[in-house]
Amino acid sequence: MSSLKYYVITRILLAIPMMLILLTIVFFVLRIMPGDPVTAILGPKAPPEVVKQMRANLGLNDPIAVQYVKYLGKLLIGDMGRSTLTERPVLTEILERFPATVELTLYAMVVAILIGIFWGSEAARRYDKITDITARSYAIIVYSIPVFWFGMMMQLIFGVNLHWLPVSGRISPMMEPTSITRLYLVDALITGNWESLWNAFRHILLPGTTLGIVISSIFVRMVRGNMLLTMNMDFVKAARARGIKERAVVYRHALKNAFVPILTIMGLQFALLLAGAVLTETTFSWPGIGSYLVMKIRYRDFAAIQGSIVFIAFFIIVVSILIDVINAWIDPRIRY
């Protein structure tokens, strides 16, 4: 399948200038933004000598072009600088936070995709019947509910009133499983640590389901809309005329053809979540990238903000290449 290989290589090469443009924008936007990082760190009443010393240490006295080249050069070797707040390397801090976000994202995506694909397909199949009408109402209502409000209601019902589930955090203290992938659910499963698994699962249930349900509203509508289009196509009718069973007609013929636009949206949503579901993470005190970024913005930690944005952008680019490749794999017309 050399055409697919060729396609993948082209997509990766095209990503390099894309990344470069992005890095440049991030760099300059942060320089233009109001708010002086040194004042933010030392406070307005700091003595001028200390401020001067700090500026020199941070390299803020260099011409902007020099700063830019240094920034790119350091990024190449994975150096995102140190947090001005904690003095720790930004990349280390981000990598500590990232697994939590990945875990939440994966869980929410599974929930959203399951609801989206099945309900969306069934709604298209039973167009204008009760399944379809409920699917449409569900999508509109859930989509318009603010995620933090929905999250708080979940906390109120299942945490505060029923005492069934913990309302915040990733896992109870001292319950962390041996670190392998740093995704607690996966680690606990690999090491067979059932107690940790159960504990971590109870923690992710509320934030993950909240996020998953909210995102599923988009997926239900997307899948339904695209399925309605493909279900009316000639090849679906032709497949029926060949005696193909209805389930295969819907899921093998119609859904697979509807998948290219659906997958694009799903992939972008996935990438967006990897950037941190800021509201959900904050509501549930989930120690991920989203809540990290919010905290760093509050303290004007330039290095950390810049680092997080670059890190997130990198993942969005990786995910979008992956989507393109999967689409090309599904639909041969794209790769030829």
Partner: peptide, 8 residues
């Protein structure tokens, strides 16, 4: 042109 499944 449209009666065969394009991805099969």
């Amino acid at each position: 042109m449209t009666s065969l499944n394009p991805v099969m």
